[in-house]
């Protein structure tokens, strides 16, 4: 167990280093001259370019740049955004919590909704309610997140704020602030849930369907268990296990959803920051959000793997 833990954490560390290295390749190597890419379409003089090169440290040979970059990242220094003219790490720190709030809330709600509907659908497969919920899930899965967000915003009119996280004139006490944020969060949250829950529903449903033919369910029935006990005690716990991993594996999808939803609703989180960075293009900033978002998803997957080990006795032993 401890050896496994060490192995997993070691693997995760390698992956994180890989992400950092990938960040370097993407934003320093591929663009050729990042300064040209960043100033594309704007009139700049040669002096300005040269100055920018020195400031970004891209005038040195690549291996030297890589070492500089790596040591800086390990120190927590992600460079300086040239649009905001502020440290990238600081910007990310400001934008982190709104994203955690939005993604966390909608993931929890989407998982609960998806699993519940998935279990119901599998148990009464082929029924009218199963067909409707599966069909609806498929349709929602087919929708681009941002489009759904724009439609919701169009349809609800002035019921909810169309963007941002809070009004500037809200009283500073906690309750009013919380209510204001909640009010702003309704639409982005709904959008994210609507697109994401379908995944969980489909995964849970097929995972439970796979368990439905298992022999131990016949054993449970033969013991005289009621149908709902057979489901609750025997089928669902088994089917839930593979679903846990998939829930975390799909976190990447939630992150992509967050980028577009935050863009549509101007929610001041990492997604909007990414959008701002790519429109610049502000390569140091984009590099920062890339490393952070990828690193976060990788860490969550390691966490899922460990959680799975705790939950499933079969894996725990080996």
């Amino acid at each position: 167990m401890i050896r496994h833990l060490a192995g997993k954490l070691g693997g995760a560390l390698v992956s994180l280093l890989f992400v950092v290295a990938l960040g370097f390749v993407l934003f320093r190597v591929i663009p050729g001259d990042p300064v040209v890419a960043m100033t594309r379409g704007r009139p700049v003089t040669g002096d300005q370019l040269a100055e920018l090169r020195v400031r970004l440290g891209v005038d040195k040979p690549l291996p030297e740049q890589f070492v500089d970059y790596l040591t800086a990242v390990l120190r927590g220094d992600l460079g300086t955004s040239h649009v905001y003219n502020r440290p990238v790490a600081e910007l990310i720190g400001e934008r982190l919590w709104p994203t955690v709030l939005l993604v966390g809330t909608s993931t929890v709600l989407a998982v609960a909704l998806g699993l519940w509907l998935g279990i119901r659908g599998a148990w009464r497969r082929g029924s009218r309610s199963d067909r409707i919920s599966t069909g609806l899930a498929l349709a929602q899965w087919a929708m681009p997140t941002f489009w759904l967000g724009m439609l919701l915003s169009l349809a609800t009119g002035n019921l909810f704020p169309s963007g941002g996280m809070r009004y500037p004139d809200t009283p500073p006490d906690f309750l009013s602030q919380a209510l204001d944020v909640a009010h702003h969060m309704v639409l982005p949250c709904l959008t994210l849930i609507a697109v994401v829950y379908a995944q969980y529903l489909l995964v849970m449903r097929s995972s439970l369907l796979e368990e439905m033919h298992a022999d131990y369910l016949t054993t449970a029935r033969a013991k005289g268990l009621r149908d709902d006990l057979v489901r609750r005690r025997h089928a669902v716990p088994n089917a839930l296990l593979p679903t846990v991993t998939l829930v975390f594996l799909h976190l990447g999808l939630v992150v992509s959803g967050a980028i577009t939803v935050e863009t549509v609703f101007s929610w001041p989180g990492l997604g909007l920051l990414t959008y701002e960075a790519l429109t610049g293009p502000d390569l140091p900033l984009l590099q920062g959000t890339f490393v952070l978002l990828s690193g976060a998803v990788i860490s969550m997957n390691v966490f899922a793997d460990l959680l799975y080990r705790v939950l499933d006795p079969r894996v725990r032993a080996s």
């Binding site: 992956s15 934003f27 990447g252 992150v255 992509s256 990414t274 293009p281 984009l286 959000t289 998803v297």
Partner: peptide, 19 residues
């Protein structure tokens, strides 16, 4: 496995920004 857990959209955004 590394690329599987990497959020594909973030990578796609990065690639299409620098190219």
């Amino acid at each position: 496995d590394f690329f599987l857990v990497l959020p594909s959209m973030v990578l796609a955004i990065a690639l299409s920004t620098v190219l």
